[in-house]
Simulated assay, not measured.
Amino acid sequence: MTVQPIGETCSDDVLVSAARAGDRTAFGLLYGRYARVVHGILLCRVPPRDVDDLVQEVFLLVLRQLHSLRDISRFGAWLSTITRNRANDYYRKASPVDRATDPAGEEQAEIRTNDHAVEQEAAMTLAVLRTLPETYRESLTLRLVEGMTGPEIAARMGLTHGSVRVNLHRGMQMLREKLDEKARSAAQNMGKAR
């Protein structure tokens, strides 16, 4: 029997099996492959200031629960579900002040205090993106913020490439419409202010 060394070219199934057996290198490689997915899903749901800490919490939880994963070929979908649940828990455990803080409103506050036009535009776009339906919001965040390709998103999320392509296309249409609407509204408000 030949033992394949754990490396970056190993399949997720091999890495999950090795990580279940206690191989920390394999788990580190899984972290490297999936950290952007977890970050993107959380960025859609919780205030940006808390995303990095929650990414770490998700992976610690995954490490503890890896033995409960029934089908190792579904690791990406399982991880995504854990991430969404952790985001929901964030709001259940949050203080009333944190719960009252709307993530989209938080970006608006950042826009007002930020001097850089590009950063303002990015924060506004993220705020608008967060108003989209979950399916589009996640796919677009992974594409636009995390820089993942359609096939990468499909592979990491356990989706078909076709469904990701449709989600990205429809999501971009919705995002453009909402951004255009927001720009028109801002222009009208500027006209009224004069």
Rank of each mutant, 00 (worst) to 15 (best):
T2K: 13
V3I: 15
Q4C: 15
I6S: 02
I6L: 10
G7E: 13
D12Y: 05
L15R: 08
V16R: 06
R20G: 02
A26V: 00
F27K: 07
F27W: 00
G28R: 03
L29D: 04
L30V: 03
G32H: 13
R33F: 09
R33E: 04
R33G: 01
V37H: 01
V38L: 08
H39I: 01
H39Q: 11
H39C: 02
G40R: 06
I41T: 01
I41P: 04
L42E: 01
L42N: 02
L42V: 03
L43S: 05
C44F: 11
C44N: 02
C44P: 04
V46K: 03
D50K: 03
D50R: 12
V51L: 04
D52H: 10
L54R: 00
V55W: 10
E57Q: 13
L61S: 07
H67P: 05
R70S: 14
D71V: 15
S73I: 09
F75D: 01
F75Y: 11
F75E: 05
G76K: 09
G76I: 03
G76W: 11
G76L: 11
A77Q: 14
T81P: 00
I82H: 00
I82F: 01
I82W: 09
R84I: 13
N88Y: 09
D89I: 05
Y90F: 03
A94S: 11
P96G: 01
A100N: 13
D102C: 15
P103I: 10
I111S: 04
R112I: 13
T113P: 00
N114D: 08
H116G: 11
H116D: 11
A117H: 05
A123T: 09
A123W: 12
M124H: 10
V128Q: 06
L129I: 03
L129W: 00
R130D: 11
T131Q: 09
T131S: 13
T131I: 01
T131D: 06
P133M: 10
Y136V: 08
R137C: 14
R137Y: 06
E138A: 00
E138W: 08
S139F: 06
L140Q: 01
T141V: 14
L142H: 08
R143Y: 08
L144Y: 07
L144F: 04
V145R: 06
G147W: 10
G150F: 02
E152G: 01
I153Y: 07
M157E: 10
G158D: 05
T160V: 03
T160Q: 11
G162E: 13
S163A: 11
V164H: 10
R165K: 08
L168M: 12
G171D: 06
Q173G: 07
Q173T: 04
M174Q: 12
R176C: 01
E177R: 08
L179I: 03
L179W: 02
D180N: 12
K182W: 09
A183W: 12
R184H: 06
R184W: 15
S185Y: 03
S185C: 10
A186V: 08
A186R: 00
A187R: 14
Q188K: 05
M190V: 13
K192N: 12
K192H: 12
